[in-house]
């Protein structure tokens, strides 16, 4: 319960933003727009789950946007080269999926190793990886995306699950939302109900104490960055499916959006505190602001201003609350 109160800033902001836009624009409160908002939260949402765990350990991951570009691009490169008449598209799609997730895991493992074995601070290690991975994506692609030879089964996350037809257009909830739901629920269960989850909080709370109490801190950190990498790769797949091209420019600003969502959701950048309910509120908030401002046709540069202001307001609210509780 105390944890829930800790995220109050995010929930209040979510409520206020929703109310303001619901009053301002009738389209905002249509069920079809709800589907639209949920569907478009997936990219940030999936990454934000991994990011939450990473930040709870006291780390950060700036490389997720780059991984979201490289992983599906490598898969698309493979699939477009090896596909063709007569090849089994389902098998090809499965190989593509493995390549995507594998690339993400590999990048995450490399990051994790440089943090645990070479003692790089997570900020530096992932700043380096952000640059390396993005660079590789541009080198391999020469700036050009791939839109041909990608089997439909690979982009299943873009397939519609539920849809509402309003007027001349259809708003859909795609399979990507199922992916997001699974990732959030699994993440929540792991963080709250398992030893690994408790270890993640313990490491962020006091790494030295966690080590002394016999936790294999290095292995858990490595795992957290690997999962973060895999989720980033999946977010890249979701983007590929929704835009129809595997492009080296994909995942642009994804790391910042995900970190913003996590921070708005009340997870402490110093580690040890945070939860996925707050993160989900943060993700929704980021998306609702963009959606609402698009509907009232406000310049998207104001979206940047609004999101910045909400980060500061939500976190500021939480910090003031915390201090009050301590004072009592």
């Amino acid at each position: 319960m105390r944890d829930l109160w800790r995220n109050a800033g995010a929930y209040i902001a979510l409520l206020v933003v929703t109310l303001v836009f619901a009053v301002l624009t009738p389209e905002f409160r249509q069920p079809s727009n709800l589907l639209n908002v949920l569907d478009q939260s997936v990219r940030i949402g999936v990454v934000a789950v991994g990011m939450t765990a990473i930040i709870i350990t006291g780390g950060i991951d700036l490389s997720v946007g780059s991984i979201a570009a490289l992983a599906p691009f490598l898969a698309a490169l493979y699939m477009s080269k090896h596909g063709g008449p007569g090849s089994n598209m389902l098998v090809l799609a499965l190989i593509g999926l493995l390549l995507t997730v594998g690339t993400g895991a590999l990048c995450g493992a490399f990051t994790g190793l440089t943090i645990t074995k070479a003692y790089l601070p997570p900020f530096i290690a992932t700043l380096g990886m952000m640059s390396i991975v993005r660079g590789l994506a541009y080198i391999l692609s020469k700036g050009t995306g791939i839109n041909e030879g990608i089997p439909a089964a690979y982009t299943i996350t873009g397939q519609s699950l539920i849809s509402i037809r309003t007027g001349t257009s259809t708003s859909s909830l795609t399979w990507a939302v199922v992916l997001m739901a699974v990732v959030f629920v699994a993440g929540h269960l792991i963080l709250t109900r398992t030893r690994v989850g408790r270890a993640i909080y313990a490491i962020g709370g006091n790494e030295q104490a966690a080590r002394l109490s016999g936790l294999n801190v290095d292995r858990i950190k490595l795992g957290v960055y690997m999962v973060g990498g895999m989720l980033a790769a999946l977010a890249g797949l979701v983007e590929t499916a929704s835009v129809g091209v595997a492009a080296p420019q994909a995942g642009s600003d994804l790391e910042l959006d995900a970190i913003a969502a996590v921070v708005i959701g009340g997870t402490s950048l110093f580690g040890g505190r945070g939860n996925l309910a707050g993160t989900f509120a943060g993700v929704l908030l980021m998306r609702l602001i963009r959606n609402g401002l698009n509907l009232v046709n406000v310049d998207s540069n104001w979206q940047r201003v609004a999101i910045g202001a909400i980060i500061m307001a939500a976190v500021g609210f939480d910090e003031i609350q915390k201090r009050r509780t301590i004072a009592k």
């Binding site: 389209e27 007027g167 929704s242 835009v243 091209v245 959606n291 046709n297 998207s300």
Partner: peptide, 26 residues
């Protein structure tokens, strides 16, 4: 109907258009 900064970005072009379709039926 509308004009918005899509940041030269494919994903941004995609989401912004989806939002527009919520409002501009025609």
């Amino acid at each position: 109907d509308a004009e918005q900064n899509g940041k030269w970005d494919r994903a941004m072009g995609n989401t912004t258009t989806k939002d527009w379709l919520q409002k501009y039926d025609k």
